[in-house]
Design a binder for these strands. Structure first.
Length: 114
DNA sequence: GTGTTGACTATCG
DNA sequence: ACGATAGCCAACA
C-alpha cells in the first residue's frame, strides 16, 4: 500500500541508520539493536542488518563497528566479510576473545561523545 | 497481496 | 554457556 509515500519513509529510515553508524566513534562498537533504536527504529535490528548488507563496497560507513548483541560478527565465519570486519576491528583496538568481542568494554555509549 | 527469508534480540529450558 | 522459540520490520519470490 502507498507505494511512493512508503518508499520515502524507508529512505528516511535508511538515512537515519547511516547517520547513526557514521557517528560511532573509533575504538568502539555498537549492536544492531542499539543502532536501530538510536535511528528511531526501535526493535528493527533486522533492518540495520538489511541496510548494511546492501552497502556498496566503496562505502565510507564504518559498518564493521556494528555487531550483534552476542558480541560476535553476524556474518558467517566462512564469509569474506567476516575476516575483513574482524581485521578492521582489531586495527581499531577492539579486543577479540576467540570469535567474540568484549561488549562490556567496547560498547558505544551515546552521550560519552561530545 | 500472501508467504518466506534474513548481517537481530529477548526470553526460556 | 548454548540451543530453541517468539516477536519485529523490510526485501524478495
Amino acid at each position: 500500500m502507498k507505494t511512493e509515500e512508503n518508499q520515502t519513509q524507508v529512505e528516511r529510515n535508511k538515512s537515519a541508520i547511516y547517520q547513526v553508524v557514521r557517528s560511532i566513534p573509533k575504538g568502539t562498537v555498537s549492536t544492531y539493536g542499539q543502532v536501530a533504536e538510536l535511528a528511531g527504529l526501535a526493535r528493527a535490528a533486522r533492518l540495520v542488518g538489511h541496510v548494511l548488507r546492501a552497502l556498496p563496497e566503496g562505502t565510507q560507513l564504518p559498518w564493521h563497528r556494528v555487531i550483534n548483541a552476542q558480541g560476535k560478527l553476524s556474518l558467517p565465519e566462512n564469509s569474506p566479510g567476516y575476516a575483513e570486519q574482524r581485521k578492521r576491528l582489531q586495527e581499531e583496538d577492539i579486543c577479540f576473545v576467540g570469535n567474540r568481542i568484549r561488549l562490556k568494554q567496547f560498547a558505544w555509549k551515546p552521550g560519552s561523545q561530545p
